[in-house]
């Protein structure tokens, strides 16, 4: 993957392909917090592809992700996973279909990387069952795919931030779900580990059937790695579609209040952020 991106036909895949998750008129918010954060959104996540959620802070990206994962009960509307309401799944049953890695995770410092990854197999085990060969194979695959083989026996507490994130991703991979929701997996990482994480996402897209929904702050990353970009603003979908049509200088001005130059290069979209816009600029 020299150019880091395989060519694709923009519109057709997104509209004709199967959808893994459908959100209909979804309204989600935090109990007792007044106004819902995500208000009446309809969203279709295409199956087997990478969908990036972008938007400024507080635009409802994480909330939407929690809504999709049935972590927040919708005040209205519904979320369908493979055509079935997410709240009709048993908790472990849902966890075998849909995984979610939240923004910040804490593990005990004193367990090994392998032990942490193994815990991703929890939804596949019964109450008294211990690990099977299938569990072991899934753990091995996940560790290999996340590229953390060399860290396998290290204690989690001794890892750097970037390594820790890759290990958490390995845990989510070991969960072996059809859909994987990643909440800002690259936000606090150095560039090297950001690329490592996005490479895992790319591998998931190219080599498996997994549907990935990833919240990203880095617009260029979203444009580069996603098949489908959803831009959120103030709890509503501002635009959705392939990156070439969604990520425009108009969108960056409207949603992110940034003046930017967007151009197409051999490495995909080139986004140059120029300066922040203020309300008076837009008048």
């Amino acid at each position: 993957m020299q150019d880091g991106k395989t060519p694709r036909e923009p519109t057709e895949e997104a509209s004709d392909g199967e959808t893994a998750i459908n959100a209909d008129e979804l309204v989600v918010g935090y109990p007792g917090a007044g106004e819902p954060v995500v208000d009446g959104e309809t969203l279709a996540v295409p199956e087997g592809e990478v969908t990036a959620l972008i938007g400024p802070n507080g635009s409802g990206k994480s909330t939407l992700l929690k809504g999709l994962a049935n972590r927040l009960e919708p005040e209205d509307g519904r979320v369908l996973l493979d055509g079935r309401r997410v709240d009709s799944f048993g908790s472990k049953e849902l966890a075998r279909k849909l995984g979610r890695l939240s923004q910040q995770n804490t593990a005990p410092d004193t367990i090994s990387v392998e032990e942490l990854v193994e815990r991703g197999r929890y939804p596949h085990r019964g109450f008294f069952e211990s690990g099977t060969d299938a569990d072991e194979a899934a753990v091995d695959d996940a560790i290999a795919m996340a590229g953390v083989e060399h860290l396998r026996d290290r204690e989690v507490g001794t890892l750097s931030g970037g390594q820790t994130q890759l290990v958490w991703i390995a845990m989510a991979l070991a969960q072996d779900t059809d859909v994987l929701l990643l909440d800002e997996p690259t936000t606090f990482l150095d560039p090297h580990h950001q690329l490592e994480v996005m490479q895992v996402v790319e591998t998931l897209r190219d080599e498996s059937e997994t549907t990935v929904v990833v919240v990203l702050h880095d617009i260029a990353q979203a444009a580069r790695y996603a098949d489908h970009v959803v831009a959120l603003e103030g709890g509503s979908v501002y635009a959705a579609g392939p990156p070439e049509t969604v990520v425009t200088s108009q969108l960056l001005a409207d949603v992110f209040e940034i003046e930017a130059a967007v151009s197409t290069t051999e490495h995909g979209l080139q986004i140059t952020l120029l300066r922040p816009l203020h309300d008076e600029d837009q008048k």
Binding site: N105, Y122, P123, S130
Partner: peptide, 23 residues
């Protein structure tokens, strides 16, 4: 000793435990 697996998952924090399907 029958709930050690559950303890292991609880130790990851509630966000992670929830997304692993634990009530």
């Amino acid at each position: 000793f029958t709930v050690t697996q559950e303890l292991d998952v609880l130790a990851l924090g509630e966000e992670t435990a929830e997304s692993l399907g634990m009530p």
